[in-house]
């Protein structure tokens, strides 16, 4: 207890916040760059050019270091999203269920990450 009688038990929230924070950097810096490059710059031109670009991207994504980068960026972004949704729900009156909300929020992010890993494995 602190001098003021405040409980000082450590909180696992630091862990979720760290994922949120790292995911925020990924979502703010890398995700927009990925969208611009893969969604607008590479597929510009006619349908044939776009198809060729998609093939090139698939080939790049098949390279292991790129797979790891994609896994890191997207997984952390998912956890960022999960943490944000959980805290928004808490603001909307579900604060009493803060612990329970971890399951659908972080569980969803984990499920998305596993699915992503399987997709990347198959490329």
């Amino acid at each position: 207890m602190s001098a003021g009688g405040r409980p000082t038990r450590p909180s696992g929230e630091a862990f979720w916040w760290a994922l949120f924070s790292a995911g925020g950097v990924m979502a703010a810096i890398f995700v927009p760059a990925f969208i611009v490059v893969t969604g607008f710059l590479l597929p510009s031109g006619d349908a044939a050019a776009a198809a060729a670009a998609a093939q090139r991207l698939a080939a790049i994504a098949g390279w292991w270091p790129v797979k790891l980068v994609l896994l890191g960026v997207i997984t952390l972004s998912l956890f960022h999203c999960a943490h944000r949704i959980r805290h928004t729900l808490m603001d909307f009156g579900m604060r009493r269920h803060a612990g329970l909300l971890k399951l659908p929020c972080y569980g969803g992010a984990l499920a998305g990450s596993v699915w992503l890993a399987l997709v990347l494995w198959g490329i």
């Binding site: 602190s2 405040r6 409980p7 000082t8 038990r9 450590p10 909180s11 929230e13 630091a14 916040w17 803060a98």
Partner: peptide, 9 residues
């Protein structure tokens, strides 16, 4: 104190 539970988080 700040790290505990909902104090800061």
């Amino acid at each position: 104190v700040m790290l505990s539970s909902e104090a800061m988080w």
